[in-house]
Amino acid sequence: MGRYVVRRLLQMIPVFVGTTLLIFLMAYTLPGDPVRAMFGDRGADPATLAHIRHDLGLDQPLIKQYWDYLTGMVLHGDFGTQIQSGRPVTDVLSDAFPVSMRLALIAFGIELVLGLALGIVSGLKAGKLRDNVVLLLTLLLISVPVFVLGFLFKWLFANQLGWVTPNVQDSMSVSELFLPATVLAALSLAYVARLTRTSIAENLRADYMRTAVAKGLPRRRVVGVHLMRNSLIPVVTFLGYDIGSLMAGAVVTEGMFNVKGVGYYLFDAIQRQEGTTVVGLVTVMVLIYLAASLIVDLLYAVLDPRIRYA
């Protein structure tokens, strides 16, 4: 197990370098010129532009710029500086990530509780009425685009019922984040419910379930221990990976509800061609993804003893 973890951690290095390089190249080949943009419509004389470029290191070859960026980040935790505002990118990161993390965790909680509950309820009665209701409901959630659902929820809960304000005022307030988190969780929730349902319906017919009944175990033990331990393995895997995408996939939701998290800053940075900010935000996301996938793989081995890493 220990050797496996070390190997996985080492494997992360090329993945990390590769992804950051790609993002770096993509961000810097975006059309437009951030230095020229600093002067707006007035324009500036070429000497000044060249001077600023030189100060920022933008006249260096791209690969040299990447190398400087990478070493600065790894050695000094320096993610660069925003060109326009002169603000360190780390400041943006420390503003954005706690918000997104909070939003993602609330969404994750909703997904976990509702998704599992719906999946268990329908899986235990596969083919019956309540199973079909859940299947229909989840199909609806999967089919409706997130912005439609978001505006629908906004209209219903903010405009019609007046339970919440349409836009989030304080991005750290849990009660205000609840509605956007629900919208964010909707799609994953449907997937979790369906995955749980299928897994349960399948394992319900397994031979070991018959054994458990033949042992004279009470029903709650047959279902709660024997069925669940087996059925939840694929679900836990999905949930683990999903934490990463909940944090990253909130661009639309955060924009719609004015939540100032990663998605919000990312969109903003792309619009302003702030390459450094984009790369910084995405790099942290890549790290979260890598960590999440490692944890999921380790958890998988804990849950399923047939899988052992050497």
Binding site: D207, Y208, R210, H226, R229, N230, L303, D304, R306
Partner: peptide, 12 residues
């Protein structure tokens, strides 16, 4: 039961 591998719970 006949097939002990499938009749025993694999994760316990």
């Amino acid at each position: 039961f006949q097939d002990a591998l499938s009749s025993l719970n694999p994760v316990l």
